[in-house]
């Protein structure tokens, strides 16, 4: 049996009440983008989770390759000076 009538897979991103960024919440199937938005509303906002929905067809997402994990992410590890705790500020100065 073929699956030629299987609806494409969509990734769903929802922005919640409190001004945070859209967050990936899961996936679903839908015939097209508008249908995906409606399905996302019904599937992923049943508990008052969202005020805005983004959908993108799963196959349109380009992901980083896990085997590149070393070169992609390790170089950031030793850049400790990007973090506030790297800098000692005398107590007398107070909160900074």
């Amino acid at each position: 049996m073929t699956h030629e009538n299987e609806w494409p897979l969509w990734e769903v991103f929802i922005r919640g009440q409190h001004g945070m960024s859209h967050r990936h919440v899961g996936s679903l199937h839908a015939a097209d983008a508008e249908h995906a938005i409606r399905n996302a509303r019904d599937v992923y906002t049943r508990r008052n989770e969202g005020v805005s929905i983004w959908v993108v067809e799963a196959k349109e997402i380009t992901a980083s390759n896990p085997s590149d994990k070393g070169p992609l992410f390790d170089p950031a590890r030793d850049k400790v000076y990007r973090h506030p705790t790297f800098y000692d500020i005398p107590k007398e100065v107070g909160k900074m």
Binding site: H3, E6, L9, G26, L28, V43
Partner: peptide, 27 residues
């Protein structure tokens, strides 16, 4: 019972990341 449909949906999607489609699983 609607939640159960939702849970089925989330799980099928998780299985789909392993290279099997929902329709294949249903079949």
């Amino acid at each position: 019972v609607q939640d159960e449909a939702g849970h089925g949906l989330y799980l099928y999607c998780a299985a789909e990341t392993l290279g099997v489609s929902r329709d294949e699983l249903v079949e």
